[in-house]
Design a protein around this nucleic acid. Structure first.
Lengths: 148, 148
DNA sequence: ATCTATGCAAATCATTTGCACCGTC
DNA sequence: GACGGTGCAAATGATTTGCATAGAT
């Protein structure tokens, strides 16, 4: 069974209705390549083939999917939330955000486990999630700087 | 020379005028204990003794101070920006954000340097800054959970 | 048939901006 | 006195919400 039908099942199980809009949005999310779509981005994609769809529905669906842990809300500091499909559990990656062009890259890593342990003990703080973001200049923009 | 006069000097050097509003806001920032004020927070504090001050001025001053690297803008995902005084350079700390009560704790650490090196090489990404946030339940709220 | 989901428009809420006046340098 | 800074109100832009209707179960 593919990812799409798996997700449809999860909606069913929670007694959520499987509306065409939700299917369309799910498909678009699964098809998206680089995976850091904002609500407006997704709305733009989805509207091409289905102009009747409303922006509010996109927001509501994203919220729903985030509540179900199908999506993660991400905030890259550009004034809008972005959403990415939740990957395999415990498979953390970090984000490299280019402050020049705004593109977001990913970096695989799990080095934070020991740090989390230390914090849990030292601060008695029960950690549920973490977010690590690096801000800087991507290789593409570095090259362009040289040319200026 | 204390911190306040030091900062006033830095404004002078940049040809910025030393208005009473700016002094008031600087004082309030320096006096603040836990140091994660939003613009609205600061406005509330400052307005008590100086009701004439405008919210727009608070925003403009915070923006100015952030541009001068006197303040860091922080986004803890609660829909408003928070500002904290920039500490000694290269003295990074991370934030523990309680998802229950919203309080923000700090954790001193410098373990990320080696990770930054690795990223610079592997991804050819010139890192300028990073932000590490841990989301979870603070010890205070953990105790309260037990009582419910 | 029931009750949730949708589309639209209006409402929110943090932040920004236009503009006439004020005060620092 | 010049020009940057301020206060106020109105503008912005992402997200949310009220409400009447449409549609999945």
């Amino acid at each position: 069974m593919d990812r799409f039908h798996d997700l449809c099942d999860r909606l069913h199980q929670k007694e959520y209705k499987l509306t065409p809009q939700r299917k369309i949005i799910l498909q678009a999310l699964l098809l998206d390549e680089d995976g850091h779509l904002s609500a407006e981005d997704l709305y733009g994609i989805v509207k091409q083939k289905h102009p009747e769809i409303g922006l509010a529905t996109v927001y509501r669906t994203l919220e729903l999917l985030a509540d179900m842990d199908i999506l993660q809300k991400m905030d890259f500091g550009d004034g809008r939330l972005r959403y990415e499909l939740t990957g395999d559990e415990a498979h953390h990656h970090h984000h490299l955000i280019c402050t020049q062009c705004g593109k977001v890259y990913e970096f695989e890593d799990d080095l934070l486990d020991s740090l989390e342990q230390a914090i849990q003990k030292r601060k008695n703080f029960k950690i549920v999630d973490h977010q690590l973001k690096f801000f800087g200049i991507c290789h593409h923009c570095q090259n362009q700087e040289t040319r200026d």
